[in-house]
Amino acid sequence: MKRILKLHVNGEDFEILTEIHKTLLEVLREDLGLTGTKRGCDLGTCGACTVLIDGKPHLSCLTLTADVQGKKITTIEGLAQDGQLHPLQKAFAEKGAIQCGFCTPGMILTAKALLDEDPHPSEEKVKKAISGNLCRCTGYVKIVDAILSVTDKSSES
């Protein structure tokens, strides 16, 4: 069954005709061409498909698209503002927190949600927050460092 859905993604409004049984992950990647959101397990256990909905991390592979109409959806493509990278994006790149990069979009968005909620989390809290975002390359060490480095900066300013 197809339906017209109105979506608000990365500050832009979209009106798309799509199948009702498509997940947000599928619509983002296939209908909107936003392939930055990754499909790692498709069953909600790897975090690679994480996007922000009204600022909070959601597994887009377990989200019905129809269900998020009228909500503010942010994908990795929408994180940089006016050509300015988000500090997390810079920190991930500079601190070596990215290897293959497949977990990176979900990881960064999860970290952003955490920092928006708590700008100065402890290391344990950072680990807990990203514990649903699996990474097989880095061993998480540099990811945690990168996230903590952003909290340091914001405390300085």
Binding site: G44, H58, K128
Partner: peptide, 12 residues
């Protein structure tokens, strides 16, 4: 509540 799944599962 904090022990269910991970962050995104708790949000959803």
């Amino acid at each position: 509540a904090k022990e269910v799944g991970a962050y995104a599962h708790q949000v959803m």
